[in-house]
């Protein structure tokens, strides 16, 4: 392997109508083992992936949303959610699942993994990456 690269996983699909969200999440969880510099971005309908209280029981589909809570344990703790996308959809940060991680360097203090950022900031972050994967 040739060292560490910056990976950004961009999610622009809503969670249930298609498989992209859940299969994208699988890539992030597997990829965590490779110890790269990893972050996720939620843009457009992708922000719906993080909506609280998802309950798929009556659709007969598996509810994958609890798996997002595992991200913190895999040291995937930078989830950038685009502010404009939330606003367009009438959502606020309070509508999102509380996703956290424990900071080893600060006596395992629990911190939020969710960072609401505006489009210009997200565009800057995108520019810093080596590899951008879209799901």
């Amino acid at each position: 392997m040739s060292g560490s690269k910056k990976f950004m996983y961009i999610n622009r699909h809503a969670p249930c109508g298609t498989v992209y969200a859940v299969e994208g999440l699988e890539v992030v969880l597997i990829g965590a083992a490779f110890e790269q510099d990893v972050c996720m971005a939620f843009i457009g309908d992708g922000v719906f992936q993080l909506k609280q209280d998802q309950d798929t029981a009556d659709t007969g589909m598996k509810n994958f949303s609890p798996a997002y809570r595992a991200l913190g344990d895999y040291e995937v703790n930078r989830l950038y959610v685009e502010r404009e996308s939330l606003q367009e959809r009438g959502l606020t940060e309070e509508d999102l699942m509380p996703l956290t991680w424990e900071d080893e360097d600060e006596d395992w203090t629990e911190k939020s993994s969710i960072h609401v950022v505006d489009r210009a900031q997200l565009s800057d972050l995108m520019e810093e990456q080596d590899i951008i994967l879209n799901f």
Partner: peptide, 21 residues
């Protein structure tokens, strides 16, 4: 093979392109 092959491809290649919907 496993998903690790995709991550490895990202690490080992100069460019990674995605063709999808």
């Amino acid at each position: 093979s496993g998903l690790g092959q995709l991550i490895e491809a990202g690490i080992e290649s100069d460019r990674l392109l995605v063709f999808g919907d």
